[in-house]
Design a protein around this nucleic acid. Structure first.
Lengths: 180, 180
DNA sequence: AATATATGAATGAACG
DNA sequence: CGTTCATTCATATATT
């Protein structure tokens, strides 16, 4: 499974955390994931048991499922992709390096990274270079947007009386996900 | 919509909601769940194919797992991502702006447009940004297709199909890689 | 219901 | 580096 790194990735500096989901909602979420995990385990075991006797079943193999589940979406099979797509492993390593900070990698550093990542799939130095450029640019843009919306919220909050509560459509991002 | 249940199940009365996870973190979470969903779907299909030949496998059965309401999300998966849909009024205004103001709006302009359009429904700056990007790109593609179909009789010697893309020179290679 | 299309969003690559 | 372009992915909607 793609468990995601240390807590540092999830907790920003100086952020204030308030409980958004109730314990019941968290439990629903946990159960939904657990159901998938259970089914996966059973099916994998079943598959192993079967292929122990019949090493090939209708040409289907689990194979790449273990390898790159993120890329297992249906459409991406036959056509050779024309642009580089990082494998899950490459992405994880890149993210880790990015989170370490240290700014933009030097040319020498990029060479080293490329060599390292090429053990996990096709990659070129320009891919690495572009990736860092894009990652940085988009993070910055996102932060700017967040800053603006935060400022607006504060301004609005100042103009309203504290007792008054206003429906904020901005929170719709959260209510849609994982609702069964 | 994000599927079943009124918002009352998720939003308590009088509760104040603050964003605890960034959109990026939410996306990571969604993808992690989606991994399970994808694996499960494929494994279930595999299981069906297998049990078509062996109707009893070592006493293991999925049983009611298929019937689980959380699993039977044929119409709306729990991992489905919500996506903005412009209202007719928003769409009309966007089209008008696109037709008059040539080119992609600046960030400042986008902010203004967003504020204006939010009077006609939920919308964010990235929605506006994406809309203009897509509108422009698709118009260009349509024009190119039209152009190709107009001139195809003249340039039939060219073996290149319209779908094929020409790899463009990479600036990183030009500026950095070939040095030394 | 299954398939096809339209389109919002994500992202690799390129430009100035 | 910030911005823009081009392609791809995923989902909502339309069609059969």
């Amino acid at each position: 499974g793609g468990g995601g790194g240390g807590s540092g990735e999830w907790i920003g500096e100086g952020a204030l955390y308030v409980k958004v989901m109730t314990d019941e909602q968290l439990e629903v979420l946990r159960r939904q994931i657990a159901i998938y995990a259970t089914i996966c385990e059973q099916l994998v075991e079943m598959h192993k048991a079967i292929t122990a006797h019949h090493d090939s079943v209708a040409g289907m193999r689990l194979g790449n499922l273990y390898g790159d589940p993120l890329m297992a979406s249906t459409s991406q099979k036959i056509t050779a992709r024309q642009r580089w797509t990082p494998t899950t492993m490459q992405l994880r390593l890149l993210e880790a390096m990015f989170n370490e900070g240290n700014g933009t990698p030097s040319k020498q550093k990029i060479k080293q990274i490329t060599t390292e990542l090429s053990q996990h799939g096709q990659i070129s130095e320009s891919n690495v270079y572009n990736w860092f450029q894009n990652r940085r640019a988009r993070l910055k843009r996102k932060q700017m947007v967040a800053l603006v919306s935060n400022t607006e919220s504060e301004v609005e909050a100042d103009e309203e009386s504290p007792d008054e509560k206003k429906p904020r459509p901005n929170s719709y991002h959260q209510e849609c996900m994982l609702v069964g």
